[in-house]
């Protein structure tokens, strides 16, 4: 797995995710990266990567909306000027 630090360089994070607990994709997976968003500017996140942790918070066992809320809040908070993603290329189960 890889730790990717995304600086909040644009007004949006600019990723779409699918998956979460109790779906076919048990951990959130990046399905889109929008041009001009912070994630795109960072250059290290890629479509297909599975998100294991966000700012050290595990995505394991979290349903889709919970995972999405955690990512949205991590981007929104003014406590940090970046969001740390632990990602993997592999679709790890549980």
């Amino acid at each position: 797995s890889t730790l990717v630090r995304v600086a909040k360089s644009a007004g949006t994070l600019g990723i779409a995710i699918e998956g979460g607990a109790n779906t076919r994709q048990p951990l959130p997976r990046i399905v889109t990266i929008q041009r001009g968003g912070s994630a795109h500017n960072c250059g290290q996140l890629k479509v297909g990567q599975v998100i294991l942790e966000v700012n050290g918070v595990s995505m394991r066992g979290r349903e889709h909306r919970d995972a999405a809320r955690i990512i949205a809040e991590a981007f929104k908070t003014k406590e940090r000027d970046h969001v740390d993603f632990l990602v993997t290329e592999f679709n790890v189960a549980l």
């Binding site: 995710i17 699918e18 109790n22 779906t23 076919r24």
Partner: peptide, 16 residues
């Protein structure tokens, strides 16, 4: 395991 996973629903997609 494979058959069980196929019975799970697809996920919605959220833009962040």
């Amino acid at each position: 395991v494979r058959e069980k996973r196929l019975t799970l629903p697809p996920s919605e997609i959220t833009m962040l």
